[in-house]
């Protein structure tokens, strides 16, 4: 499944990194503690978080993620948008909770892919 299909299917709003929308989504991860995400998020995952600051981009790049979704109606910082655009990393927003989106993604077959 591609990031683009999830964007269209769930009305996720692309804020940055549209060049990366054709990346394949291999799994999912929810987390707001960056060390936890850094240690455990599966490669190629879509990451659901309430964090919108710049440091999420480095974590996503280092974990080779497909995309970041900032949940709960929050918006990424301006620096996050700039950095994600440079890295061609899709940053999307979703107005409701991580729980709600994770449930829908899971129902669609985006599971917790094995690490790595």
């Amino acid at each position: 499944m591609r990031v683009r299909e999830l964007v269209e299917g769930f009305n996720l709003k692309p804020i940055a990194g549209e060049q990366g929308l054709d990346r394949e989504v291999k799994g999912g991860y929810c987390g707001d503690l960056l060390s936890d995400v850094m240690a455990k998020a599966p490669v190629g995952c879509i990451w659901l978080t309430v964090q919108g600051h710049l440091n999420i981009v480095a974590v996503a790049v280092l974990r080779e993620m497909a995309a970041i979704v900032i949940t709960g109606g929050r918006e990424p910082d301006v620096e996050t948008v700039q950095k994600a655009s440079q890295e061609q990393l899709p940053v999307l927003t979703w107005p409701h909770s991580s729980f709600e989106l994770a449930g829908r993604l899971y129902a669609l077959g985006v599971g917790a892919a094995p690490t790595p």
Binding site: D32, L33, L34, S35, M38, A39, T49, Q51, N55
Partner: peptide, 15 residues
């Protein structure tokens, strides 16, 4: 507040 400081950094490094 930024999601750091969970006390996992050094343990992750060791692992």
């Amino acid at each position: 507040e930024m999601g750091f400081g969970a006390g996992m950094g050094l343990p992750n490094m060791k692992k």
